[in-house]
Design a protein around this nucleic acid. Structure first.
Length: 1090
DNA sequence: GTAGGGCTAGGG
DNA sequence: CCCTAGCCCTAC
């Protein structure tokens, strides 16, 4: 019998088309399976449906929105819809029905009896399994019906659990009918079907009913279930045959045709390991990771990997900048709470998948770090901080779960931030986690030492800011503030990417370099801590983590802090993490990245702060941090200065965007700028960029005249534009938008450049800061990209030498305080090595020749990365090369920095150009990009680079020599030709770079700048470097990298993304991408405007 | 391709 | 019923 259910059918379901057919089927059709076929979807779904199909029914459409009821949303009552024949339903999926349960009705009484009743029902039903519809019979009579309608209220939550209602024969029959129509497993669809009426049942309820009432069928359809039997037996008891009979139609045919989903295949440890490794190497480029044979064997898809990663390593996932799932978040929070402290970080665990989690979990603390993430599992280990506070925010984050909100809400965004900010718990946790993972290393390294300077301020500021930020952000969105955050975050992320491996190194490096950074971190932590109070360290982390922003701003340091102190360990990471979009970076990136970014952010902040009055807290914090940085660094330098003001703004914006975007805090980052500039942010639109360099150039020109303006423009372009959308976007924007990218770059750049500016070198300062922040991530990415790029290769071999030299010099200069020696060298060395290959290839060939080069690049990367994963960078590179796009991205990444730093417009231009949508330039862009990367190399490269393809423009660049302060930078390199454009207007003018495309030129310059930055970054490390060990390699890169900026560039590229972006894995890219991604995410985060 | 979510399988 | 995690879909 088919279940007489009857109704069936066919009738109405409008659901999806399929249904209808199927519908009809249901009852009738023999159960044949295939519903699918039947359905063949009319609907579009068909396709999709097909997937589903896999499921059971073909297309069964899931959806049906109709009711959603319960849950969350309000529900519409579900039924209400009732019938409505199908069509109506559709639409909404969302509302989940689930809980419908509520029914109040059910309430009580029944509940208890329900079970029993069920039995009875069964009986009834039993006879015929599906009692004919009619059967509503008694059972129904029972109560259920009545209620049924009720769902209503869904209270939203259903706090109250449902009372149990027993299933009536009718319902059972409906269930059968529904299964035939939609396939077993499409509970929601069944539930939504107007024709089928269930007392307030949730999909799960249907499932449970199916499982318990039709054990045989259940077994068939759910072969994986281990628990089947019980029920069966039970049922058996009841009515002996019932069970069977139930499952089968009288005639023996199966009642239920299909089932829908494919079997679940839990991830194996091997897969988890591979996933983790892949992540380390490639970051979140699931598509790349999936290539691992292991996954193929399992038939896993990239999305599956993502899902798994999301569940298993929520922290990392969050760090990467993605929105963790609610659960995870929750978990984390919990953990956090629990923890309270961080203990030490510990770290390590990176591997453990969440699954383990549980194990660890408790500790969660660190996990908390993940914070954002969630929690899932996390490892615990780390004690992050107490999370006290934070968590909260975080929690909110966690809230995420629900989250979904879109970006706007800052919540999510906040989440990041918040987390970061606030609580950071997540971040912290995450951070730690990450740190642990990626970095366990780096933790150590830094340390406090670094922190010092800034820390105080930063911390303070941070703390505050963070908190505020969280809040504010959501609320206010102050652009300014947000921006910072976002920006920073971005940068961070970028940095981060490189991170892991790099981290260590970087961190170390950083440390030296930036004390402040470290300081900051500490400060940050402290700030954060403030909230938490208790575990400051944890707090730091969290906060940092949580709020990338703060971290960023602060510091970069965080990393430092991390290191050393234990800060919270990892606070640095935290930030980084936050920032880093990608987890990939995470670890390593931190230091480096952070440093880099932070700077900028910092810079920005200050600007903002100043400029934007409003500044919400966040801002302030950010500002503070910046300020600190600046101060620390010595504002003086700002060599680049000029920019700084502007740059700062820019940065801020940029950062903001990034951060903002991610977080969603404030979309508007743009505002910031305008303050400074004339330009309104608006202008920034990508369009500009896209539109063309011209525009840019024009701007530029103006810029020249008015640097600020120029910057602003740049900023606008870059950052904003994209950002505009969301935090993620922002980030993306930066990255993504290539055009903007460069802008982004600018942003970053500025951030860096400006921000720090200074000091000794802006770059340094910022860098330091940034680095700290970025840390690892950045490093890796940077390293790879930038360094590589930088490496002479691109530019010119000849130059290369110079470049390096220059770098060193620069570094030294910058470093001043810090020893040049460090040099990062080591890092640098590494980087160089890697670089060269990469750079040249990349630069030149890359685009064209991806493969060859790429390989090289890859190698390099690898080598660089030695470290692990951070790899992203590596990956990226490789990809990059191979793919032009990638290259670009990298470049882009690098670029940004340069711009920032140098700020040179040029880069931007180049980048922008490159990236820019228009891009068509790609090739050029690519080149340029590299050039950019090259920057460090720049000098040399510049010249050469310029020579390169786009050279011309470069020419323009040249001029500038950096002003004094600037000295550091590029000068050297540039000096030659391109030079410092950034310094000079020239480079703006060079901007011409627009014209050119120069990007090269610009790029180079920028690169140079970057290089400088890197160098600086590197320098510091030296000391630590050792410790960094792993990272060391990374470090260098990091140095090189300024990458962060690049990231931004990436952003730009990203935009292009298509191009390579995807391909590119590099961490930076990731970041960037993230940014993009973020959009979505962001949405959630920010909620931004999407 | 990917981020974000939704939905459900399966176990508790 | 709850919860977690895997599968899926969709938007971008």
């Amino acid at each position: 019998m088919l279940p007489p259910l009857a109704l069936p059918a066919t009738s109405t379901f409008s659901f999806t088309a399929p249904y209808p057919a199927s519908v009809s089927q249901p009852p009738l059709r023999p159960p044949t399976k295939l519903p699918v076929s039947a359905s063949t979807p009319t609907s579009p779904s068909s396709v999709k449906g097909q997937r589903r199909v896999s499921l059971a029914l073909p297309s069964s459409p899931r959806q049906f929105p109709a009711w959603s009821f319960r849950d969350d949303t309000t529900l519409r009552v579900g039924n209400s819809s009732n019938d409505g024949a199908g069509a109506a339903l559709l639409p909404e999926k969302k509302g989940k029905i689930r809980r419908i349960a509520d029914d109040a009705d059910a309430s009580a009484s029944e509940s208890v009896s329900a079970l029993f009743s069920l039995t009875s029902l069964q009986h009834t039903a039993s006879t015929v399994p599906p009692p004919p519809t009619g059967s509503s019979t008694a059972a129904e009579a029972g109560s259920s019906n009545p209620r049924s309608s009720s769902y209503p209220s869904p209270s939203s939550s259903e706090p109250p659990k449902k009372t149990r209602k027993k299933w009536t024969a009718e319902e059972t029959q409906m269930l059968v009918t529904g299964c035939n129509k939609y396939g077993v497993g499409n509970w929601k669809a069944i539930l939504n079907d107007p024709e089928l009426r269930f007392d307030s049942r949730s999909p799960v309820d249907l499932k449970d009913r199916f499982r318990t009432y039709f054990p045989d069928a259940y077994k068939i359809h759910y072969p994986n279930a281990k628990t089947h039997l019980p029920s069966a037996s039970a049922s058996a008891n009841r009515s002996s045959n019932s069970s069977k009979s139930r499952s089968m139609l009288p005639d023996g045919s199966p009642l239920f045709l299909q089932s829908r989903q494919k079997k679940r295949r839990p991830f194996t440890p091997e897969e988890d390991r591979a996933l983790k490794e892949g992540y380390d190497k490639h970051g979140t480029v699931w598509a790349t990771i999936v290539k691992d044979p292991v996954f193929k064997e399992q038939g896993r898809r990239s999305t599956d990997l993502r899902d798994r990663f999301r569940n298993a390593w929520p922290e990392l996932y969050a760090k990467a900048g993605y929105k963790p799932r609610a659960n995870a978040a929750k978990k984390k929070r919990l953990d956090l709470d629990a923890d309270g402290v961080l203990e030490g970080a510990n770290g390590p665990d990176a591997l453990r998948p969440s699954s383990e989690p549980s194990s660890a979990p408790a500790s969660a603390t660190l996990d908390a770090a993940m914070a954002l993430g969630n929690g899932a599992e996390r490892p615990r280990g780390h004690p992050i901080r107490a999370a006290t506070d934070d968590q909260l925010p975080t929690t909110s984050t966690s809230g995420v779960g629900p989250v979904r909100r879109k970006r706007r809400h800052t919540t999510q965004g906040f989440g990041l931030f918040r987390n970061g900010t606030k609580s950071s718990p997540e971040s912290m946790a995450n951070t730690e986690d990450e740190a642990s993972e990626s970095e366990a290393d780096w933790d150590g390294p830094f340390d406090e030492a670094a922190q010092p300077p800034t820390s105080n301020l930063s911390s303070a500021s941070l703390g505050v800011s963070a908190e505020h930020a969280d809040v504010d952000m959501d609320i206010a969105q102050d652009p300014s503030v947000p921006d910072f955050v976002s920006t920073s975050s971005l940068s961070m992320s970028d940095l981060t990417d490189s991170s892991s491996q790099a981290h260590t190194s970087w961190s170390e490096l950083d440390t030296p370099l930036h004390p402040w950074s470290s300081t900051p971190s500490s400060s940050q932590q402290s700030n954060q801590g403030q909230t938490q109070g208790a575990s400051s360290s944890m707090a730091f982390n969290e906060s940092l983590a949580a709020s990338p922003t703060s971290t960023d701003y602060f510091l970069p340091h965080s990393p430092n802090a991390q290191t050393g102190s234990g800060m919270i360990g990892k606070s640095a990471w935290g930030p980084q993490d936050w920032l880093s979009p990608n987890p990939r970076l995470d670890g390593s990136g931190d230091s480096f990245t952070s440093g880099i970014f932070s700077p900028s952010p910092i810079g920005s902040p200050s600007l903002y702060s100043s400029s934007s009055a409003a500044p919400s807290h966040p801002v302030s914090l950010a500002q503070l941090s910046f300020s600190h940085l600046a101060l620390a660094s010595g504002s003086g330098s700002q060599s680049n200065a000029f920019s700084h003001g502007h740059s700062a703004h820019v940065h801020s914006q940029a950062y903001s965007h990034g951060v903002m975007d991610r977080y969603d805090l404030f979309p508007p980052s743009s505002h910031l700028y305008h303050g400074t500039d004339d330009f309104d942010v608006d202008t920034f639109d990508l369009d500009f960029i896209s539109e063309g360099p011209d525009a840019a150039s024009s701007d530029v020109h103006s810029a020249f005249s008015d640097p600020s303006s120029a910057w602003a423009q740049g900023a606008r372009r870059g950052g904003f534009t994209h950002h505009s959308n969301y935090a993620g976007d922002l980030i993306f924007g930066a990255r993504t938008h290539q055009p903007s990218g460069y802008l982004s770059g600018m942003d970053y750049g500025p951030g860096f450049g400006f921000g720090l500016g200074t000091g000794p070198s802006m770059g340094l300062g910022l860098e330091g800061a940034q680095q700290s922040v970025l840390h690892t991530p950045a490093l890796p990415g940077i390293d790879e990209i930038e360094l590589t790029s930088i490496s002479l290769n691109d530019p010119l071999p000849n130059d290369k030498e110079d470049m390096p030299m220059a770098l060193e010099e620069v570094v030294n200069a910058n470093m001043v305080s810090s020893p040049p020696p460090p040099e990062a060298t080591s890092p640098g060395g590494d980087s160089q090595d890697s670089f060269q290959p990469l750079s040249l290839d990349d630069i030149v060939g890359i685009p064209p020749e991806p493969d060859g080069v790429p390989q090289a690049a890859e190698e390099h990367d690898t080598s660089h990365h030695i470290t692990p994963p951070a790899t992203p960078v590596n990956t990226f590179r490789a990809p990059t090369r191979s793919q032009t796009g990638l290259s670009l991205q990298h470049r882009s990444v690098s670029v940004p920095p340069s711009e920032h730093r140098a700020f040179q417009p040029p880069p931007r231009p180049g980048q922008s150009q490159v990236t820019s949508p228009k891009a068509k330039y790609k090739n050029l862009m690519m080149t340029p990009t590299r050039a950019t990367f090259a920057v460090p190399q720049l000098p040399a490269s510049l010249g050469s680079p310029s020579s390169m393809p786009p050279p011309p423009p470069p020419a323009v660049h040249s001029p500038p020599a950096p002003p004094p302060p600037p000295p550091l930078m590029w000068p050297t390199p540039d000096a030659g030709d391109n030079d410092l454009p950034f310094l000079d207007l020239h480079y703006f003018s060079s901007s011409d770079f627009l014209a050119m495309g120069d990007a090269f030129g610009a790029g180079s310059l920028q690169l140079g700048a970057q290089a400088l930055d890197l160098a600086q970054a590197l320098t510091p490390p030296p000391p630590h470097a050792p410790s960094a060990v792993q990272k060391p390699l990374c470090v260098p890169p990091a140095l090189v990298q300024p990458p962060p900026p690049p990231s931004s560039f990436k952003g730009i590229h990203a935009h292009h993304r298509g191009q390579s972006a995807t391909a590119v894995v590099s961490p930076q890219d990731l970041f960037v991408r993230h940014g993009r991604d973020n959009k979505r995410k962001r949405a959630s985060w920010d909620g931004g405007p999407k």
